[in-house]
């Protein structure tokens, strides 16, 4: 009778341990595999640890596999898009919650509609529009799409933060002679730091992850992003070069891993905000 709770506890602990292993082991395996020599994949079973540190895989992926280039492209596109998303989300969000104008409700609903739009639905006409404007195979096409499709959710998140900002603070600032632009920059932005970080984190993951837009609008290798690059990696290296494939996949994961290790609480909050508040 006394043993029962202990047995139960042990079983549950084992279940939790098993789950943690299932969730993390594939990643560990990937990192070890990225450091294996080509021969190890043939001679040893897949689960064996790496015999040494064969960094050549990373060098191959970075240079021959064009990862350096893809990284640069992804980074540029993502960063430009993020800057605009944050600026727009804060200004539009502020106008929709704190400023007084006639069409406010309507515009607010109009922006909210976009949360439901699947990218696939807009893709075909967007391709035609870009084609007419000669924007296919340009960085601009991607950045514009990234910004526009990031707006709805970001504005939604920012407004939910702004609603809890007391009006008295704004009033006090206005009485002290603050104009609207000063008010935005010196009062609203500093107070919205948490909201801005949430939007940044969430959108960074979304944009860095984009595959659909970049594979549709870009076929010039010089402009490809990490995700499209990875997708065609196997074709370029051949399916036998596991080491280089693992190295490139590991590399593409690095920015996320780093960000997550340093800021895991912020990242978890940012990522889940889209579902919890949406």
């Amino acid at each position: 009778m006394n043993n029962k709770p202990i047995i139960k506890k042990t079983i549950i602990r084992l279940i939790i341990l098993l789950l943690v292993i299932i969730e993390t082991y594939p990643l560990v395996w990937m990192l070890t595999a990225s450091l294996k020599k080509p021969a190890e994949f043939v001679e040893k079973p897949a689960y064996a640890l790496n015999a040494g540190f064969y960094w050549q895989n990373y060098i191959d992926a970075w240079t021959r596999g064009n990862m350096a280039l893809f990284f640069k492209n992804s980074l540029i596109n993502t960063l430009i898009a993020l800057v605009f998303i944050v600026i727009f989300a804060v200004t539009v969000g502020f106008a929709l919650t704190k400023m007084q104008w006639k069409l406010r409700e309507f515009v607010s609903r109009y922006f909210a509609l976009g949360i439901m739009v699947p990218v696939a639905t807009a893709l075909i006409p967007l391709f035609q529009i870009y084609n007419k404007l000669n924007l296919i195979n340009t960085r601009t096409s991607l950045v514009l799409a990234y910004i526009a499709f990031g707006l709805s959710l970001s504005i939604y998140l920012i407004t939910s933060y702004l609603r809890s900002l007391p009006d008295e603070i704004l009033e006090a600032a206005v009485i002290d002679g603050c104009g609207i632009y000063k008010l935005m920059w010196h009062v609203v932005v500093p107070l919205m730091k948490n909201g801005i970080v949430t939007v940044l984190v969430l959108q960074f993951f979304f944009k860095w992850n984009d595959l659909l837009f970049s594979m549709t609008f870009i076929n010039d290798t010089a402009l490809k992003t990490v995700q499209t690059g990875l997708l065609y990696f196997q074709d370029e290296f051949g399916s036998k070069n596991w080491g280089a494939i693992f190295a490139s996949v590991s590399m593409s994961v690095m920015p996320m891993l780093l960000l997550y290790t340093v800021l895991n609480k912020t990242v978890i909050e940012g990522m889940t905000a889209g579902a919890v508040k949406g």
Binding site: T91, A95, M99, L126, I129, A148, Y181
Partner: peptide, 30 residues
């Protein structure tokens, strides 16, 4: 200050145009 029409236009219009052209218009276009 909070009813400043010029500021409202500046805050809302660029995002509104971009969003309309790239998200909503293509949906209707589909």
């Amino acid at each position: 200050v909070l009813g400043n029409k010029k500021a409202i236009t500046l805050f809302v219009l660029p995002a509104l145009i971009l969003y309309t052209a790239i998200v909503m218009l293509p949906v209707i276009w589909s």
